[in-house]
Structures are given as C-alpha cells and as structure tokens.
Amino acid sequence: MTTTDTTTVETPSAPRVTEEELARRARRSELTSRWFWRILSYIAVLAIWEFALLDIFSFLRGSPLDPKLLPGPSEVVSTFFEIWGEGTMPAAFQATLTRIAVGFGLSFLIGAMIGILMQSKWFEGFFKDAVLISLSAPGLIWVLITAIIFGNRPLGPTIAIILTTFALVTVNVSEGIKALPKDLLDMAKSFRVSVFKRNRQIVIPHLAPYLFTGLRFGFSIAWKVTVLTEVFSSSEGIGFEMRISAVLFDMSEFLTWILAFFFFALFLEKVVLEAIERRYFRWRQAVTAT
C-alpha cells in the first residue's frame, strides 16, 4: 500500500486506481490462470491420447493403442456430431433426465420428510440404520437388486435412485434442523414477529444451504445410478445407448456417449449449480470474507 501512496504523490495526474478495482483485477487474473490450467489438463490428456494412436510407432511393432479398440479423440468428436445429427442424443438425454427428475424429486421429498421425522427419538431409532445402510452401500447393489426385481419397468430405476440418495437429503435436513438458530428465533419472538414470517425469513433461509448440499450430492449420485440402471435394464436413455454400442463393439460410439455424459454432468455441476449458489448464497460469501 505504501508504494501506491508514493506513486500518487509523485504523479498526481495519473488516474487513481481504487483498492476495490485492484482487488477485482487480482481476483480476475487469479481466476483466469486457474481456468487456464484446468483447460490445459484436458488438452494434455486429449493430446497424449491422439498421439498414442498415431502410426509412427513401427519400431514398437504398432501403436501403443489400437484404434479399433480405442478410437482417438478426433474420431470420437466426429462421431459425436454424427449421432447428434441423427437426433438420438437429445432423446436419450431427455429420457435419462426425466428419470432423474422423477426419481430424485421423490427421493428429495422422502428424504426431507424422514429428516424432519427423525427429530423425534423414536423415529430416529426407526430410521437410523436404514439411513446408514443407504449411505454406505455401493449404488451398484441397489441397481442390480432393482433390475432383478423390476426388470424393464420404470419403477426399478426410480426405486434405485430413492434408495441411494434419500439418506443424503435426510442427513442434511436433520443436521440443519438441529442447528436452527435459537438466538434469532428468540429475537424474532421478542419483537412479536409472526410465526409465518419467522419461518419464511429465519427457518427457510437457514435450512436452504443444508437442502442445497443434499441436492448437490444427491444429484451427483442420482445421475450415476440412473445411467447404471439404464445399462442393465432399460430400452432408452444414455446408459441404454452405451450398452448398445458396447454390445455392437462400436467403441467410437461408446466413447461418444461417455464423453457426452461427462460433459453434461460437468455442465450441470459447474455452471448450473454454482450459478444457483452464487445467486442465492451471496450472504455466505460475505460471512467467509470477514
């Protein structure tokens, strides 16, 4: 700070840069370099992959990777546009997303309800182990069990999603309720603020981050479980398309579906959910900043 002071004294005509502006610039350059390295990692992987397939390794008796078994990124990208042109991709995404929306929507409601019920000692005893099992058992188990029981019926994936994700919501809701800010509720009570307003302006904003955490983690699991169920037992959706291309041994198509899945998940996680977080939890940044 002393250096800025001296420069302003020596060159009074120079435009004054406020500290806020400096902080903003520093933040922006940090963000840029972080993204640069992040994107570089993708480029590096793709470059190595493509390079390993080149036909220049005759001295090793062939390339390290066989393009028939593992096609290169350029081929995958062209397949991507082919499939996109056929219109299968939006349809598959729509099928998968609908399944997630229904399954996870239900799971969220059930999980939240159990979280509320678990505030009572008896219900806590009743649900405790179920929650624990759901949290610790690998999702694959539920996928297999529901596939065996329900076969091709849509109920299977829905139940698999509920069983794998409800506990995440339950745990978060329950924790949120336990941490309700009594001091603020008391304050509101002493000022004769109505119960409705107390709930709307204290209880809900307090629970929102807990719900959001449940939503976020639950969603990332729901997403994987849904695709898995489709691989095992379904006739549409991303997982189904993956199975078909694997069965037909069309590796390029198989990888295309994996990549599409991956990028879509990344988009939801990094763009959609983070935007929601920035929009609704600005006050939390204020808290952590101090």
């Binding site: 001091d183 603020v193 307003k197 204290i202 204020a286 808290v287």
Partner: peptide, 24 residues
C-alpha cells in the same frame, strides 16, 4: 411493545442491514 437489544447483535446473516430492520 418491547424493543430488545441483546448481548450479541443477533442479526439475520442472510438479510442486508436495512432488511434486518425491516424484519421487525
């Protein structure tokens, strides 16, 4: 109608200063 100043401030962290006053 009572007004109460607490030992700790007890403000709603998710509301601005003005909205904290408007809340009551």
């Amino acid at each position: 109608a009572p007004g109460y100043v607490f030992q700790a401030a007890r403000l709603l962290p998710w509301r601005t200063v003005t909205d904290n006053l408007m809340f009551v």
